[in-house]
Simulated assay, not measured.
Amino acid sequence: MSTPIGGGTQGFWIEPGEVRKAGDAAHKVAQDMPENIKALFAPTDAAVAGLAGFQSAQAIDDCLEAWTKALRSLAGMVGGAADAVSNSSKSFTREDQERRNSFLGLNPYTPGSPGPYAPGLTTPPLANGGR
Rank of each mutant, 00 (worst) to 15 (best):
A52K: 15
C63Q: 08
A46I: 09
P34N: 02
A70H: 04
E65K: 13
V48I: 04
A70L: 06
E35L: 06
L51D: 02
A30W: 12
K38C: 00
G50E: 05
A70D: 14
W67L: 14
A57D: 10
A49S: 08
G53A: 04
V48C: 01
A70S: 11
A42H: 05
N36A: 07
H27Q: 14
I37S: 00
F54I: 01
A42K: 15
A49M: 10
L74K: 13
A42D: 12
A75N: 00
K28E: 13
P43F: 09
P34F: 08
V48T: 05
L71N: 05
A49E: 07
A52F: 08
F41T: 05
D61C: 03
L74A: 10
A39C: 07
G53M: 06
L51Y: 05
N36K: 11
D45I: 09
D32W: 06
A75S: 13
D32L: 07
P43C: 10
A59G: 07
E35K: 15
E65Y: 12
L40P: 01
A49L: 12
L64T: 01
L40S: 08
V48F: 00
M33F: 13
C63N: 13
E35F: 10
K38E: 14
T68L: 04
A52T: 11
A75L: 00
V29A: 15
E35T: 13
E35S: 13
F54P: 03
A30K: 06
Q31A: 14
